[in-house]
Design a protein around this nucleic acid. Sequence first.
DNA 1: ATTTACGATTCACTCGTTGAAACGTTCCGC
DNA 2: GCGGAACGTTTCAACGAGTGAATCGTAAAT
Lengths: 272, 272
Amino acid sequence: MATNGADYSIAVLNRTLDVLDLLTEAETPLGATEIARRIGTTKSAVFRILANLDRRGYVSKEAATSRYTLGVRLVVVGQRALRSLDLRHRARPVLEELHARFGETVNLAVLNQGTVVYIDMVESAHSLRTAAAVGALDPVHSTALGKAMLAFLPAAERNAQLTLPLVARTPRTLTAVLALHQELDRVRAAGIAEDNGENELGARCFGVPVFDHLGRPRAAISLSGPESRLDDGRAAEIKTALITAAGRLTAEIAGARPPAVPTGVKEEAACG
Amino acid sequence: MATNGADYSIAVLNRTLDVLDLLTEAETPLGATEIARRIGTTKSAVFRILANLDRRGYVSKEAATSRYTLGVRLVVVGQRALRSLDLRHRARPVLEELHARFGETVNLAVLNQGTVVYIDMVESAHSLRTAAAVGALDPVHSTALGKAMLAFLPAAERNAQLTLPLVARTPRTLTAVLALHQELDRVRAAGIAEDNGENELGARCFGVPVFDHLGRPRAAISLSGPESRLDDGRAAEIKTALITAAGRLTAEIAGARPPAVPTGVKEEAACG
DNA sequence: ATTTACGATTCACTCGTTGAAACGTTCCGC
DNA sequence: GCGGAACGTTTCAACGAGTGAATCGTAAAT
């Protein structure tokens, strides 16, 4: 499809975001030349962009080495972004309730740029536990959270969210697109996604999508823990509880909606 | 002085950061037209900027109303920015130690764009306590943290960090530039800044700067609480402990340095 | 001491951002 | 229910602005 091509794209702006994204991934401060090389531009362009970002506090230049890091202003903006996610506020009590009932780690995540972004969580008190962090990222295809949202996305968008090739996080990760799509069919039928050591060996996770008022998956909640504690005996109860919880959340953020398993999410524009 | 004028300024980029800064301040989602009006540009420019930011997840467009909020990607970048502040890691034990000893709220902050940015804190366990949040902002002129850093900044930069007019947070806030400079002279002489209800009535706070290897104030730590508990009796002990703690931190981040009260920070380039 | 590589700076070119104007839609008041 | 206002969206020609190749000075590497 696409009348597109280059939309409303602004070159400088995209390069700027490339710089920020690169600095976000980077483990260590980066120099202008290296940044230019990695994002495929010239030194001078990057240099000027960095000068602008620095002046505004969005990046920080190490005085000694002239290398750059993410700036303090991004902490301010990021915290503000986090607090303004009202989804997070509404989900809190639901997460806490699930945590109280099962004693395992409970997560809230959204889909962003083809990755799962953790927005909130309540960690298990067990010493052996799964743990994520706010703002942390995980692949869509190897997590219950990702698969839960993916499954209920219109087919076109679904593919757009996949980063090919599907990297194997563990030997169990589904790396074949076809296999993943079949898995997503199962998820859609069951209303719940499952991850058995596909993202991290020994960890099991159940994820359920939360929908907005248009019936589009806007987030997902999950419960995760070591396989040893999440045996099939407990699984059934947990799954039911998750589906109920997600339904309640959907009902709340969507206004008034069928809270149960949404069965009818058809491909593309289901306006019937 | 300035050969400047417009430096390496990039128009689109500055406008983009204006948009982000505006969305950061905003309490509610904003439309393109309103943003344009507030930052003084045309609708179409803002619209295109927003389209670009949206595509990258830096802002989020409410599907229903076409109004914009800070995006999830900023949560990711912001959390990363926070974690990459190694100052924060190093300061943690110092903050915890001060908190353990006095049982009051202890803060770590840096100067950014003329405001105090809280980077980390350990909150008092008392029910009546001062409380800030990571990423929160406060004025430089009304806080002990701000005054502590301001006092040791070269005169030129000091003025650059002041947002005039100095707004009165309380009746006690110093709003006269001259009075503030006199206060900063006292802070410089004492090596510690004090805030007696200047930022919030009933709250008292002591702040000490932390220096980098060039002797420039890079951060400040503070201890704050209700005036009722921070009486002059305890103040002396607290002040000494703060100065010692900040000295230790300075020594650590600056490499090896005179950890005690830095007395000789002269105006401009003190390379003697 | 020599070399290399980096950050910083310059400048003419031209490509891409600009802003005014117009379109379609939604929302409000009458 | 109807007019109007205000919004988000789209278009387009013009010129201002960002580009990148080349250069300088400096700091690290051999």
